[in-house]
């Protein structure tokens, strides 16, 4: 249905989005009518009763009970409608169906990791099946983050000391953006992920094979893709800029001073170690905040990243 304020909302891509949008339209349209009505009356009075002489006196009108009760009760009824409508929608959005497919999400400054039931892990990519309720059980490794997918009209804070959950059912295969909506520091605005919706068969295929579709890439090309997809770029630049972590540019083969005062050469083993147990050898001047990639990268992918870093010469 085409409505006046459709331009204000992103496409509806979940089963509960329509419910939210209906209420959004209702409030916006009623508000617009009231806003224009009251403003028109105000402007009409300002014109009709403009001052014509300095000595005018005005009638004494102190109050009018009927009128005042009317304009208290009508808004009260309106907001009660909005309240119950909103609460109803809220219940639907917060109570996942029993048969929902469960995915575990871990938020870390500043990336998202998703653990699937077969042990597969993806970073900054959330793969879900279409037309099946998905329940995400979330926690944070550090500060508060918030899981927000505008296309699904879902949002839930991700807390460090407890689990929170969110559920949705995507209606069609495609991609949507997942934002972190709770301010979490320097790279808060880069803490995005892709939600990739597969058909049920494709989803199962993806779960089996993971990123095997990358077979035909050269190791360096695959490495470049992985560095971008796995959220590395939130903290490590490839152009020499120092972010939360050291830049990759020209790093390979160089000596690096560590926080414990020792020096290592950045070679294949150092990179491997940094991916799997990142906080054992932290470069001097940086915080030990990098999450481990042990669960999300296989050997071939680690090799590819090493090959890619070798290409980043100054």
């Amino acid at each position: 249905m085409n409505r006046l304020f459709d331009f204000m909302l992103p496409p509806e891509k979940s089963t509960t989005a329509g419910e939210v949008d209906a209420l959004f339209h209702f409030i916006t349209e009623v508000s617009l009518i009231l806003l224009l009505g009251i403003t028109a009356v105000m402007l009409y009075f300002a014109f009709k009763y403009r001052r014509k002489s300095e000595d005018e006196t005005t009638p004494l009108i102190t109050h009018n009970n009927t009128l005042e009760i009317t304009w208290s009760v009508i808004p009260l009824i309106l907001v009660l409608i909005v309240f119950s409508w909103g609460y109803q929608g809220y219940l639907a959005k917060t109570n996942p169906p029993d048969d929902a497919y469960e995915i575990r999400a871990v938020a870390t400054s500043w990336l998202w990791q998703f653990h699937y039931q077969n042990g597969h892990v993806s970073t900054n990519e959330l793969h879900v099946p279409a037309n099946r309720p998905v329940r995400i059980i979330m926690s944070s490794d550090d500060v508060i983050h918030s899981f927000y997918v505008p296309d699904y009209r879902v949002k839930m804070d991700v807390l460090p000391n407890r689990y929170t959950q969110v559920w949705f059912e995507a209606t069609e295969p495609g991609e949507s953006v997942l934002y972190c909506a709770e301010y979490c520091g320097t790279a808060h605005s880069d803490m995005l992920a892709d939600v990739i919706v597969h058909t049920q068969e494709d989803f199962e295929l993806w779960l089996e094979t993971g990123d095997a579709i990358d077979e035909d890439l050269s190791p360096a090309e695959l490495g470049e893709q992985l560095v971008q997809r796995q959220g590395c770029m939130a903290c490590h630049s490839t152009d020499g800029t120092v972010l939360q972590g050291p830049s990759f540019l020209g790093a390979f083969g160089r000596d690096r001073e560590l926080t414990d005062g020792t020096t290592v050469t950045i070679d294949e083993n150092y990179i491997r170690q940094s991916l799997l147990e990142p906080n054992t050898q932290v470069a001097a001047g940086f915080q030990p905040i990098m999450p481990s990639y042990a669960a999300s990268l296989n050997d071939r992918q680690i090799d590819a990243i090493i090959e890619y870093l070798k290409t980043l010469e100054e």
Binding site: E19, V20, L23, F24, I27, T28, S31, V79, V82, F83, W85, G86, Y87, Q88, G89, Y90, A92, K93, S146, Y148, P150, R153, V154, K155, M156, A181, E182
Partner: peptide, 16 residues
């Protein structure tokens, strides 16, 4: 717009 944000289901979308 405050009424909008007070409505629970819509606020989930508009919060933050």
């Amino acid at each position: 717009t405050g009424i909008m944000l007070g409505a629970l289901s819509v606020d989930i979308h508009l919060h933050d």
